[in-house]
Design a protein around this nucleic acid. Structure first.
Lengths: 124, 124
DNA sequence: TGAGTATATGAGCATCTGTTCATATATTAA
DNA sequence: TTAATATATGAACAGATGCTCATATACTCA
């Protein structure tokens, strides 16, 4: 995604504030932590996945429930849940053949709440 | 993105918890608010854009600074900033020919902080 | 006004994403 | 074990995304 072009000066204008650039570089997150955050936000940046997370905030649901709620195939839901599971946004518990999904921790709720506040405040 | 398939029962298993499904539907966010949140998270779900936001948290930067910091073209940065501007994640102020960008409000910082906490806690 | 600098924008293209469809696995009950 | 149910997974394909390149706009100074 980020491609370092070595040996080429990509910025040839003269307005650079050298200290701000080096400060930004110094304060930057390690690449892997940046990527982890990217994956988290990317996971929440999909209409269906966000609806799933929002719904699970109110209580656990099985794959079939979610599919019925979203009006999409169970396969599609399963793929989405796998992603959310891998990033530890959701957990599940098995009861017989049925898997019940729920949010993994309060951070997910916090993120949605903060995002909602942001949007409600910016929209004048 | 979400395609409602009318006249077709997409879920034909019998495990549906009818009450959970209708409850989820009742509690669901209005479509436009869900989409706004999606756009916000999607905007933050890109490695370069997130680096920009993280850097701006420490102080304003001009397009050229950001390009130098990220080692990408100014055009690419400008495209990214346009998106962030449209979603009101960043603002800018002009000083002569130079545009200084900064974060729009504290929510952006909060989101990054919460995401970071989530990732640090989940990573055992 | 014209030249130079800083940034913005549109089109085009390679890559990534999310769905569908087919198939596989897991659990339960007969 | 076999059949049935619930979920998972892989491949493939259409649509979305982020870059580059060319060009346009905005501001400053001579």
């Amino acid at each position: 995604m980020l491609q370092i072009k070595e040996g080429k000066d990509l910025c040839d204008c003269r307005c650079i504030h050298e200290n701000r650039v080096t400060a930004a570089a110094d304060d930057a997150l390690p690449e892997d932590e940046n990527l982890q955050m990217v994956h988290l936000f990317k996971a929440m940046g999909d209409a269906n996945r966000l609806k799933i997370l929002w719904a699970l905030e109110k209580g656990e649901m099985c794959v079939c429930d979610i599919a019925a709620f979203l009006q999409v195939s169970e396969s599609a839901v399963s793929h989405q849940l796998r992603l959310l599971r891998q990033l530890q946004l959701v957990k599940n518990r098995r009861q017989g053949p049925i898997l019940y999904y729920r949010l993994n921790d309060h951070h997910i709720t916090d993120l949605m709440q903060t995002a909602l506040e942001h949007n409600r405040e910016e929209k004048k």
